[in-house]
Design a protein around this nucleic acid. Structure first.
Lengths: 125, 125
DNA sequence: CTCCTGTTTAGACGTTTTTCGAAGTAGTAC
DNA sequence: GTACTACTTCGAAAAACGTCTAAACAGGAG
C-alpha cells in the first residue's frame, strides 16, 4: 500500500505547482508538519542501523503509546516510513525517496541541480 | 516582525531533532502543508520579477478573497513570504532563506554541513 | 492453556484549522 | 468631500487534528 509518487515536481519556485501535485505534496508535508512526527522521523532516520523500535521512540516523549502509534501511522500512510514486526517488536525505517522528494521541492534555484554533487539519484520508478 | 531563525538544523536523518527545533520547524512546515498555500508559494516564487500581486493569486482559486488573504498571512507569519503595498496593489515575494532552510532539512546526508559555503550567519539561540 | 509485554485500533473530547460573509482600512479617481 | 477598487480583519460554522482511555491484537514465557 501507500503508493506514493516518488518524484513529481520541480522546485517550488521554478513553476506554479499544479492543483494535483500540490494536493499530493500537502499530504506528505502535513505528515511532517507536527513537532512530534518531525522528531519521530528524525529519530528513526538517525538511529543506528537505519531503523528504530517503537519502544525506543515512545520513551522519548511525554505521550501515551497509542498517541505515538497514531503519529507513526500518519507518517506511514504518507509514505515517509515503513514498519516491520520482528518478533515482539516493531521496527520503523525511513523511506529515503520520499524525504528526497521534499528536499527537491525546496531546493534553491540559484544553482542548477547539476552543480550539487550527488544531489539525487532518484529517477522516477 | 516575523523573526525566524534562518538556519538551525542538520538534515533530518543526521541526528535527532531537539524538541525546540522540531517545534520551530513544525510552524514553518505547517504553513506549507496546505494545497492552497503550497500553490500560492509556488505562484509567488515562480512569478516574473520574483513577486506577485494578490489580485493575480486570488483569481487562480475558487476561494474568496478573505480566504486567500488568510493563507497569505499564514505564510507571512511563518516567515516564508513578505508583502509590500505599492499604490493600489499588494505584492508578495518569497524569502529564499526560509525556503532553503526547509530544503536543508530534507537534504540527503551525502555531504557534511561544513562543505556548504556561507549558508548562514545565525547560530541557534 | 493463561499471563504478560508491546503495539494498534476504536471512540470520545477539546483545540485548531479552513472557509465564509460582513465590515473595516488603504488608496485612486472624480 | 463621495465613490469605487484592492485587500485585510472580524466573527462564526464545519471539518480536521492531537490526545486520551479502554479494548483488541500479536507474540513470547511459564
Amino acid at each position: 500500500m501507500t503508493a506514493v509518487t516518488i518524484q513529481c515536481c520541480a522546485p517550488i519556485a521554478r513553476e506554479p505547482l499544479s492543483e494535483t501535485d500540490a494536493a499530493e505534496l500537502a499530504v506528505m508535508l502535513k505528515a511532517v508538519a507536527d513537532p512530534v512526527r518531525l522528531r519521530l522521523l528524525s529519530m528513526i532516520g538517525s538511529h543506528a542501523g537505519g531503523e528504530a523500535c517503537v519502544c525506543d521512540l515512545t520513551d522519548a516523549f511525554d505521550l501515551t503509546a497509542p498517541t505515538i502509534s497514531h503519529h507513526l501511522k500518519v507518517l506511514r500512510t504518507a509514505g515517509l516510513i515503513d514498519g516491520e514486526r520482528r518478533g515482539t517488536w516493531v521496527y520503523y525505517r525511513i523511506i529515503p525517496e520520499a524525504v528526497n522528494k521534499l528536499g527537491a521541492l525546496f531546493a534553491p534555484l540559484t544553482e542548477p541541480a547539476s552543480s550539487r554533487p550527488g544531489e539525487l539519484e532518484l529517477t522516477p520508478a
